[in-house]
Amino acid sequence: MIKIQPHIIQEGSVQFQLGEQKGNQIIYDFPKMLIYLEAKGKLLFGKNFKIYSEDEAILYKLCIYFIRDFETCRKLKIDPNKGILLSGPVGCGKTSLMQLLPFIVPHQNQHSLIPARNITFSFNKSGFKIIEDYGNNGFYCFDDLGVETTGRHFGKDCNVMGEILLSRYDLFLKRKIRTHTTTNLNAQELESRYGIRVRSRMRELFNLIAFDKESLDKRK
């Protein structure tokens, strides 16, 4: 059931209003979105979770994308029809943000966040069916792309996530189903890991949003 006022979110006894409804349009307020994201983050990840001021530029782009603000996306050179590739150093908060951000748009289809290494483990056990399962259906965010090992099933090696990304590209062309991913790798490392063909498809699949390489490890 579609929520009538998706910009008004209830968490326990506290109500968060993320913007104002004008006619059939919601005008979101970024500072209010940040307040909600920090509160929801504390509920999900513990009381020490916080939104860092140095991450607000990244968060602004991500929020604009998730709320489907097409005009601002165009100004920021973000293609709302593509997925997000969120890159940055270990511990900068990529996974937490991709878990958090769907909560600001409860009326939209939600992606499932799946660690890439878990997919490879499943391939090792179940074989090529796993590539079909994740490549041909569903709305996913593949977490920590590039840390997974090469898959091996009955003596055959396979770059599992590379094959899945090729399938997701075909899925994107045919059905416009987006894919998200997070990674610690830069463009050159991704190309080395998955090859030129996959890297080329990734440019068409994703908007690259990158944390500064000097971003703090927030887990320390």
Rank of each mutant, 00 (worst) to 15 (best):
I130C: 00
I130H: 00
I131E: 12
E132L: 04
E132K: 07
D133W: 05
D133Q: 05
Y134T: 01
Y134V: 02
Y134G: 01
G135T: 06
G135W: 10
N136D: 15
N137M: 08
N137F: 14
N137K: 15
G138W: 06
G138S: 05
F139C: 00
F139P: 02
C141I: 08
C141Y: 02
F142D: 10
F142P: 10
D143H: 04
D143S: 01
D144L: 00
L145A: 14
L145C: 12
L145E: 04
G146M: 05
G146E: 09
V147I: 12
E148K: 11
E148V: 07
T150P: 05
G151H: 01
G151F: 00
G151Y: 00
R152M: 14
R152V: 06
R152I: 08
H153L: 01
H153M: 01
K156R: 06
D157F: 10
D157W: 03
C158V: 04
C158P: 07
C158S: 13
N159Y: 08
N159T: 08
V160Y: 00
M161N: 07
M161H: 10
M161E: 02
E163D: 10
E163F: 01
I164E: 02
S167F: 07
Y169R: 09
D170L: 11
L171A: 11
L171Q: 15
F172M: 07
F172N: 05
L173W: 13
L173S: 11
R175H: 14
R175E: 13
R175K: 11
K176F: 12
K176M: 14
I177L: 13
I177C: 08
R178A: 13
R178Y: 04
T181P: 06
T181G: 15
T181D: 12
T182P: 09
T182W: 02
T183L: 03
T183W: 08
T183E: 02
T183C: 09
N184C: 06
N184H: 08
N184R: 01
N184I: 07
L185C: 04
L185W: 02
N186E: 13
N186K: 09
N186Q: 04
A187F: 09
Q188K: 14
Q188P: 03
Q188H: 12
E189R: 13
L190W: 00
E191P: 04
S192K: 13
S192A: 15
Y194H: 00
Y194D: 00
Y194R: 00
G195Y: 04
I196F: 11
I196G: 04
I196M: 12
V198H: 05
V198R: 05
R199D: 07
R201I: 10
R201P: 08
R201L: 06
R201F: 12
M202T: 03
R203Y: 15
R203P: 10
R203Q: 12
R203H: 11
E204G: 11
E204W: 04
E204D: 14
L205D: 01
L205H: 05
F206M: 10
N207Q: 03
L208G: 05
L208D: 06
L208Q: 11
I209C: 06
I209A: 09
I209E: 07
A210T: 13
F211H: 06
F211I: 09
D212K: 15
D212P: 14
D212V: 14
D212R: 15
E214I: 11
E214Y: 13
S215M: 03
S215A: 14
S215L: 03
L216R: 10
L216K: 14
D217S: 03
K218P: 10
